[in-house]
Structures are given as structure tokens and as C-alpha cells.
Computed example of a mutant assay.
Amino acid sequence: MTDHDLMPTTRRGLLALGGAALGTTALAGPSFAGGDDNDGDDDDDDRGRGARSYRVTVANLTPGQPFTPPAVALHRPAVEVFSVGDPANEPTRQVAENGNLGPLVELIEATDAIRAAGVGDAPLVPASDPGDTGNPYYASLELSADASATHLTFLSMLVATNDGIVGLDTVPLPERVNASMTYYANGYDVGTEENTERFEDLVPPAQTLILGEGEGGTTESDPDLAEDGVIRPHPGITGDGDLDPAVYGWREPAGYLQVERLD
């Protein structure tokens, strides 16, 4: 299967999940990086340390959970886009509940300590592509950042969940040219919405990306389902609603990442 390279992004909403149609990605504009300097470091000094290029390959390891297009950020070690055991911030909540990457893009553009970032150009489906979507099960993104970016964060929605994500929080980048590092990413429940497992409460592509057809769903958060929890390991699919664990369930790890330093 051909690699799906990095697509440029802007502050606009990145994932169109409307109606009963298959989820697609709407991307335009330049690659994004940090904006205002929020941490007091000397930006010019860091940029003078030279750009480093990386290839980040993200793969879906589940048999029945689609991912939204993977979002990857290269950043300084103090950055925490999400943290297990803490309440989810609004960008993480929007990704987890609605597949909405717009607030995450805004966070990245406003945070100078995030030195480079990008989003894949398609949802990642299981390798068997059970919905016959033609979408890939992996994507390769190439990013460049100055030497102050020493860590990586990865985030995607587990599409057929109420508020599930698959991700990595602040893991090291390889230091040497031609070195690579392998990571496995688990699924997390961000604790902001009850797990009804009903299609009417999930984003529309929850059915189409796996079954190839389906109706209903929503791209808006339902206040009646709101929870006041913290990010925790995902309990998996229980079968209490419309989701069959044999179809939509998974074993950890849910995702695979290989990070290579190119130069």
C-alpha cells in the first residue's frame, strides 16, 4: 500500500464527518508550527541550532476500530497535549467525542513550544479494510523542526467509541541521524462522555468505515451524556449498545509508531 504523506493544515476544521457519507479529510494551507513564544525561551537561539527531519509512520493495529487522520506534534519536553490521570482539555475532548481536530490545530499554532506538527490525509482503517473503503491502515508523515523539539505526541480518535482516543504523550525523538524508535500506542477513554455505544451517539463514519454502510450519528457533543472524569485506559467495547465487541473491539496496543530521524 502506498504511503499517505503529510498534508498541510490550517485552523479550519480538518475532518468532515457529516451525514451518512464516508468520513473524509478537508485540509488546506501550509504546515503549521508554534506561534507566540509562551515559555520565555530565546526562539532565535533555538532555530539557529539547525533543522532536523523526521519520518513518522503510524499504523492501525486494531481489527475493527478506525482512526481519524493521525495528528503528530514535535515539541519541547514540557508540552503536554494530554495526560493520563488528568482531565482532558478542550482540544482533546473535541478529538475524542467528535473527531474535530480544529481546536487541536489552534492549540498547536498558539504554542511556541510545539515546533512542528501535521495531520495525515485520510482516516486509518484496520489492515483488512472491512468496510472496503480504500483507506490506508498506515500513514507516513515527514516533519522538520529545530533541535529544541526533543519529543513527540500523537493523537487520533477511536472513531467507533463515544470518547476514545489512541495516542502517545511526550515520547522521545531519536537523536542520531538514521536512528529510529518504535512505539506502541494504547487506547484511552478521556472521561468526558458516557460510553453508550449507540450509533446515534457516535460520529457517522463509525458504521461506514467498518461495515461499508450505515445511517445516523452526530458530530456534536450531547450535554446529557457529559461526564466529569479523567483520561484513563479505555475499557474496550462491552456490547451494551449497538457495538458488537467481536466487530469493534480490540486488544492493546491499538496503534504502532515508527519514528526515524532522516537528517
Rank of each mutant, 00 (worst) to 15 (best):
G167H: 09
R198H: 08
M181P: 00
V190W: 06
T161N: 01
A179C: 05
G167Y: 08
E197T: 06
P172Q: 07
E175M: 12
I165M: 06
V203R: 14
L173R: 12
V166C: 12
V159I: 08
D201L: 05
L202E: 01
M181V: 09
E200N: 10
Y183R: 07
D189G: 01
D189Q: 10
A160M: 01
P204A: 03
V203M: 11
I165T: 12
V159A: 06
D201Y: 01
V171H: 10
T182Y: 08
V177P: 11
Y188K: 06
L202C: 01
T182M: 00
T170C: 13
L168G: 03
S180Y: 15
T192D: 02
A179R: 15
T182I: 00
D201P: 04
N186A: 13
E197G: 03
D201I: 02
A179W: 12
F199C: 04
N162W: 09
G164A: 03
M181G: 02
L202R: 09
L168A: 06
R176N: 12
E200I: 09
V177M: 13
N178Q: 13
V171A: 08
E175H: 15
F199L: 11
V171P: 06
V159H: 04
M181H: 10
P174E: 13
Y184G: 02
G167Q: 09
V171M: 08
